[in-house]
Design a protein around this nucleic acid. Sequence first.
RNA 1: GGAGUUGUAGCUCAGCUGGCUAGAGCGUCUCAUUUACACUGAGAAGGUCACAGGUUCGAGUCCUGUCAACUCCACCA
Length: 716
Amino acid sequence: MDKVYKQQAVEEKWYKFWEESGFFKADPDSDKKPYSLLMPPPNLTGELHLGQAMQHAILDAIARFKRMQGFDVLLLPGVDHAGIQFEGTLNKILSKEGLTKGKLGREKWLERAWKYKEEVYQSFHKTWTAFGLSADWSREVFTLEPKVRKAVFEEFKKFWEEELLYKGAYIIQWCPKCGTAIEDLEMEYQERKEKLFFVRYQIKNTNDFIAIATGRPETIYADTGIAVYLNHPKFAKLISKNAINPLNGNELPIFEDKRVDKKFGTGALKITPGHDPLDFEIGKDHHLPTLHAVDKTGRMTELTQDLVGLKIEEARQKSVEKLEQLGAIEKTEDYIHSVPVCERCKTTVEPLISEEWFVKMKPLAEKALKNMDKINFLPKNYKKILSDWLKEIHDWSISRSLWWGHRIPVWYCQKCNPNHLVGKDKDMVISIEQPDKNCQTCGQKHWVQDEQVLDTWFSSGLWPMATLGWSDNTQELKKYYPWDFETSAPEIKFLWIARMIMLGLWFKDEIPFKNMFFHGMLRDLQGRKFSKSLGNGISPYDLVEKWGVDATRMALYGYSIPGRDGRTSRQLMDERCKNFRNFGTKLKNIYRFIIELKPQAIKNKHATAVGNLKNTDDKKIMEELNKTIQSVTKNLEGFKLHLATDALYEFIWHKFADVYIEKSKARRAEAQPILEYVFRISLELLHPFMPFITEELWQKLPHKGKSIMLTKWPRA
RNA sequence: GGAGUUGUAGCUCAGCUGGCUAGAGCGUCUCAUUUACACUGAGAAGGUCACAGGUUCGAGUCCUGUCAACUCCACCA
């Protein structure tokens, strides 16, 4: 982040010229037809990665193309506050200063957070304007700014009024390191070889035993029952008897349940509702109590007697030792299973019971499903992928135990509702600010706000609307919604894209975007994702510094095929960039030949008119040019940027330069008008992809108008 | 367990609704030697388009199956 990006002088000059001339600005008052592109807001964390650089290159090419076609283009930029990620980074910095959230307190911590946000934002911002992005910076949005805050409040309030919100103690996935609940979608799995312990539980008042297999003996303290497979002859005589918990002597009822897999372990399952989602379900149906052996910091609770305060790993070992001493371990097996870990910090996720907020998603998903046909997905099969997920939707856990984010806009009367319960008859108020009114019960004002914040995606899901000023019915919303074009990495198709579709349809009764372009993932040569921990990332800034913006953009268009992952390496990127840097040099040399080395005889003759063509070379190159115009236009309309750039490269270099220009040397004066014309049109076609060099050269050619950005898109 | 994607030159990949001797960039080899451009030009070598069937006048492209690689979702006591 402290790296200063060195933009080349030419790029800086033109970018400044465009921006200061207001060419990037959308104009809601204009009569032109709108074309709107929504930039996925990058996370507030340092630099952009190569994939985002590609996104920006894609968005910008289409924006520039549509502008030249005469649309009123809105390319709207923004930044996401990235709740968990940003908070984690800041806490790491604070811990180096010996500070913690606890020591600072919420208010001081937030002060620090906003200060840090500004620092990151400033340096970050410099780097991401670097790609030549023709975004309307005057409309830039940050997901925690007041406009979004208001929209998020509306969203929350409407959900509440529609009775789609609920709060309660449920089993959720908890990351002990991040200190918050996370969603299934925010977890990943690591395959590990662990031990499976076969533990014997004595049947009360007998010398019989029932054996169960468990990978987590430390949670035996929180067992509240034992379930066996339905109609299992082996266990028939044990049903309705009680087993004795070997670690604390508690009595555990034995019962049947069809959800127990008869093939796994012994066919009997210890039920620990506090620490396993399946057990939670089974426990609920059989009215078992819920106990906790592990707390939210990942340490053992008082329930575990002398193990209290130990970390899970240690406690597991100690529990096994104890069980061995008691002769309760029948055998031990190795087994390989996938352990869920937090996507961000790779800490093992603990299923825990916690008070969280949820949104009932079924009605939203159903509405979305009915409207999926209205969105043009690229590639097409994403419609099915998203639809399949929507059909299996489960409720959205939206609360996070963090401080960085939109604080839940709910206030409880501390006196009358100390447990912060939720419901129509409870002493609580939905409000963005501290309520002014009195509590209905006590007639006083003891309002305290809910401690938690909303999931980052709760605000990002509203991005297409919040950025245009929803819930007010703004002129922008009327003109630019639904968005014409949105792009995203496939990674966040459920977290983000599916949410935008559902929320857009729910609140605005319209799809959020007409064209949804999923680009592929850039991977290393072994097919692995780029990541900090692997150290295999490629910095787009290094490429830009070495090869220039135009060349780097061109190299990236080669990877911009919908749904196709691309394998690459620093070396491969360098090769590709080098190739397009050479292409840029070729353009400069064409310019030099056509304009600087113009024969004396025609020095002062501007040849803009291309009359009747008699020469066969002239006819041929004009035909080829027309074909290229058609192909580039068609491919841009279809968002096939790789084909558009291919066609241009092939035409300019191998048809125009290698053939036509070579041949023209014999009849230079006569060919001059065609040379100038073909070159100028070529630059215009190339401008969406290589904005800087095309502007630089176009300005030096005989031309009309202030900028190549403002020219009319060539027609065949 | 469910869904999806990929398999084309040494490498990274294009190839649209099936249509002439299958393409690009990089790499390799030969030639050109100061040309608008060596950040160049001309040319060459290199592919049974994973495999096996099928549809068709015609298949890299469509269908079925097999093998391989990958991704996503669910589950994992």
